[in-house]
């Protein structure tokens, strides 16, 4: 008992200061995301809806959410493509006989618990909300791009007009109004779900229990809250 108390009294401030992570507020939901790669058909509706909902610039290099198509050839070589983030649909130009394996991987912010992007922000403009959603304070961001470099998943970009860092907010404005985030709303196959990780009877617990889930780059200890079912080792 005393040992546990001592350990938490040391580890909590350690987590807070080193990882810039706040203690999860047990009275509020702590959001996690589940993506079933086996169900994803690569239609790109998520990427399209994300752009429409969040007024993301239409140019094909600004994305908060996008879909990648992975193709592993019989000779072991790997090809990853994401034309316009998958918004216009995906095409396969490798002949079927040459393909060993192919699948889609929808990407978005992992809303890490120990976010590298939050740790590097020099002004406290990017932060983890009490619900575990990593957000950017537009008015406070100075556009130094540290966070864009720090994100190991490439989920941030510099907004060309606002000149501030921009990223997936898990549609925080929709969550707060009781609506589903846009990408979840339009997914035709139900490949993505989100829910409260504290809730022992919730959809996320069910998803994690019934699937063999993995996070991206677990070696980086980012505490990613985006769990993929059926994730191949080739996915980066």
């Amino acid at each position: 008992m005393a040992g546990t108390l001592l350990a938490t009294s040391v580890s909590n401030p350690f987590t807070a200061y080193i990882f810039a992570a706040n203690e999860p507020d047990k009275s509020k939901p702590w959001y996690g995301i589940g993506i079933d790669i086996e169900k994803c058909i690569g239609c790109g509706n998520c990427a399209k809806a994300c752009k429409a909902e969040n007024d993301v610039p239409k140019e094909p290099f600004f994305f908060r959410s996008w879909v990648e198509q992975y193709t592993i050839k019989n000779d072991g070589s790997l090809k990853v493509q994401s034309p316009n983030g998958g918004i216009d649909g995906q095409t396969q130009d490798i002949h079927e006989d040459e393909i060993f394996k192919t699948f889609f991987v929808p990407k978005m912010c992992n809303h890490c618990e120990k976010s590298p992007c939050v740790q590097v922000c020099p002004v406290g403009a990017t932060f983890e909300s009490p619900e575990g959603v990593v957000l950017v304070d537009e008015k406070y961001c100075i556009g130094c791009r540290y966070c864009i470099q720090a994100c190991p998943y490439g989920c941030r970009y510099l907004h060309p007009e606002k000149k501030t860092a921009d990223k997936c907010t898990l549609c925080y404005h929709r969550l707060k109004k009781g609506l589903n985030p846009a990408c979840f709303e339009v997914c035709p196959t139900g490949a993505r779900i989100y829910g409260d990780l504290h809730d022992k009877d919730g959809v996320m617990h069910k998803f994690l229990k019934e699937h063999n889930c993995h996070v991206l780059k677990p070696n980086l200890n980012t505490g990613s809250k985006l769990f993929y079912n059926g994730l191949n080792a080739e996915v980066r």
């Binding site: 706040n22 429409a52 983890e128 957000l135 304070d137 008015k139 404005h173 609506l179 339009v186």
Partner: peptide
């Protein structure tokens, strides 16, 4: 600033009140 953590707490409300486009 610093109400919940090392950030401006009012920005939470600012983000939460952004307009929605998908109605359901």
């Amino acid at each position: 600033f610093g109400k919940y953590g090392h950030y401006r707490a009012n920005s939470l409300d600012e983000i939460a009140t952004l307009p929605t486009h998908y109605v359901g």
